[in-house]
Amino acid sequence: MSARKSPSLMLIGYRLYIAAFFVFLAAPLVAAGTFAFNDSLFPSLPWQGFTLDWFFSATEPKLGMFHDRRLLSGLYYSFVIATCVSALSVFVGTCNAFLFVRHYFPGKNALYVVMILPLVIPGVILGIALLVLASTIANSLEQATGIELSFLRPGIVLVVLGQFSFIVTIASLVIVARLRKFDMAMEEAALNLGASRARVLATVTLPYLRPAMIAAGIVGFLVSFENFNTTLFLVGSEAPLTVIMYDRMVKVGSTPVLNAVSLVLMLGSGVLALVSILVQRDRSPS
């Protein structure tokens, strides 16, 4: 910007600011990860030496994360929830993309804004609103007929639906962006060569969309895995990992096992995020 007047000094100051910013960005993550290797019962200084106990130890008090049944069950439920949310979001997101890119109907622009709305509704609100609706339906049904629909009570189904309600917006936006760049001439060529509509979809259009669908799936998976605000109100007995970690964190006596989990999650999501970026970058020139 005003780097022009005395370029060297201004630029050095600017670079220092950027460096400081990245230190700020990295500090808590480094702290959360590093203490996983501290051979102490508390995730704090002084450094007591290097250990892998917080990952692999099978005995109390240093129960490692891979032997901690509650953490492992949380990991399992998070995985199940994230897989469902991601698959559902990619499916509905792809439908939305075709709906908004390929079709013309009255009120299309207004509905496109409606599609984006869930992103600007606070996650807590999405959670309680769904909880209220599901419980109201379940209660009135029980009073009227005596039938108990357990999936309308807090539990895995509601968590999936609650997360899906806004993650599908993210998935739709990613897939819409790719479908907009599609060259219609490619479909027309295939049709002229005698292919049926279904065949064109399966062999031309969907393969073109594949990178965006994979990226949307990965992003959806990660967002779901990390979600806490919406999940908090909808969770039943099958608590996902974030809820279990939160419960331990608010108790004072948290051990470095939480750091171990954090490190594994950071590495896992880092790898997945990288894959999603690489998949999207590897696109045919268009």
């Binding site: 954090s262 997945l272 995020a273």
Partner: peptide
């Protein structure tokens, strides 16, 4: 810049607590 975007709020807050 994007890497911390993929780390849960929970872990970031936890990191700040430790600091």
């Amino acid at each position: 810049i994007l890497i911390p975007l993929w780390v849960s709020d929970l872990i970031r807050a936890f990191g700040w607590i430790l600091l």
